[in-house]
Write a protein that binds this DNA or RNA. Structure first.
Lengths: 253, 253
DNA sequence: GAGTGGTCTAGACCACGGT
DNA sequence: CCGTGGTCTAGACCACTCT
């Protein structure tokens, strides 16, 4: 009979919800505005709270929403572009470097980092912790691994304060001649300590930018920088101002 | 009394599970091996299936697991490094470009792309679809937006086949003098069409690499490339061989 | 303390891939 | 057909923030 065969591919409720909410965000909400709470929203759409949350999770992943326990769900501002350009081939800590040194101690780096540094696994290296602020918010944390060989002039253990020790390592590192750097970006999830730094929950999605600095033909340092994936866009261009992507919306398909 | 105050910060079950499973994967499983099914695993760990799934989701996000409906959960191979280096400043389609042209039609680009191209919103442009294979698997899809002004020599509508039309646009585009390019990487979620291309479900996490090509001082084309975030690592270095990250594991904290 | 999002449960049914 | 992961429900309780 007239079974017109709509819904031959019924899309999941949470996905449909995501679409509806996306459109609502584009047209009816201003940045910073708080949404109704999850229980009300779920009731309004006639779904279980878990289903609604699946949709909200998507939107948070896409940087459209921000959720904070005990507070509520708010409309997120557009992602902030963070310039990680390759042309400015500088050592960490030079010139217009916005990173804040926070501390430095000696640790055994992860096996993969030891491999990249071409040191024997198990050796300790100087490990500088730094963080990057943008618009009043911490958007990234970094661990910079510096083998002893890269900072020969470092005068014993001069330990005035954690941050001062970090600056000393950076200053000494800058004496090497930087040949170039190799980088990779991948998706990761925040460890407990990183999550705390970034004001997120453990497991929050992050962009991991790994940089290997090469000086005088040898690996001189490895940086593992962890950016909040929800709020950041990593830019590599000549003009970081360009606002590509994330306007009213990506193509509807 | 002697309440030794352990567990002052009881970590969530799913997070603890993730840790346990990570260690198991590192020590007891080989790449490609299939895990027990979710119901069995949940029972074995004494948690609800939803909780176990939360842990598996994390591990899939981190590229450690691969789950396929109707099949099972398998241990994923290490992420494949995809070179998107900036040194090879080439037009799409030149030389050692591994992308496969798949089709081309005229569409109205998303508002953000129109802005980046500096064309009036609503104008149609040539839209080339391409895809990138690696190790027998499609790892990325791309939409390349090319305004008419960038391909003036294109002879009317010569339409032998979709792929041929794509090649024609690329060929014509290469006649422009490329000044440079501006790029950005951000986290996104796969639209329905992209998900199908990449053999994932809608909403799967992807790395979106947006490139604006500049020729003769004007934006000449914009590429929006969507990479599977679970299986890809985007590399920018001089030597893409470097295997940084994702060995036995990142630092335990 | 009131209200928010975060975690967890124990079920049910569906969609898909292989047989 | 069976077994897999994917979706969804209706509850419960916890952890946090703000007042």
């Amino acid at each position: 009979m007239g079974t017109t065969q709509l819904e031959s591919v019924p899309e999941p409720k949470y996905w449909h919800l995501r679409t509806v909410l996306t459109e609502a965000l584009d047209s009816e909400f201003a940045v910073g505005e708080v949404l109704p709470n999850e229980r009300d929203l779920a009731a309004r759409f006639g779904v279980a709270r878990a289903t609604l949350r699946q949709a909200l999770e998507q939107l948070e992943l896409e940087g459209r929403l921000q959720r904070r326990r005990g507070v509520g769900t708010t409309v997120a501002p557009p992602r902030v572009g963070v310039d990680v350009g390759t042309r400015r081939q500088n050592w960490p800590g030079m010139a217009d470097d916005d990173w804040q040194p926070e501390g430095c101690d000696r640790t055994v780096p992860p096996a993969a980092v030891a491999r990249a540094l071409e040191i024997t696994s198990g050796d300790t290296v100087h490990t500088v912790r730094r963080s990057l602020m943008s618009q009043g918010q911490r958007v990234a944390t970094e661990l910079l691994y510096v083998p002893d060989a890269s900072v020969p002039g470092l005068s014993a253990i001069d330990a005035p304060s954690a941050a001062a020790r970090a600056r000393a390592v950076l200053r000494e590192l800058a004496h090497r001649d930087l040949d170039g750097q190799e980088r990779a970006v991948e998706l990761g999830s925040a460890r407990a300590d990183e999550a705390k730094d970034l004001d997120r929950l453990p497991g929050a999605p992050v962009l991991v930018l790994t940089t290997r600095f090469v000086a005088e033909g040898r690996p001189a340092a490895v940086s593992v920088a962890t950016y909040r994936a929800d709020t950041c866009r990593l830019t590599f261009g000549d003009s970081p101002e360009v606002e590509i992507h994330h306007g009213p919306e990506r193509q509807a398909s």
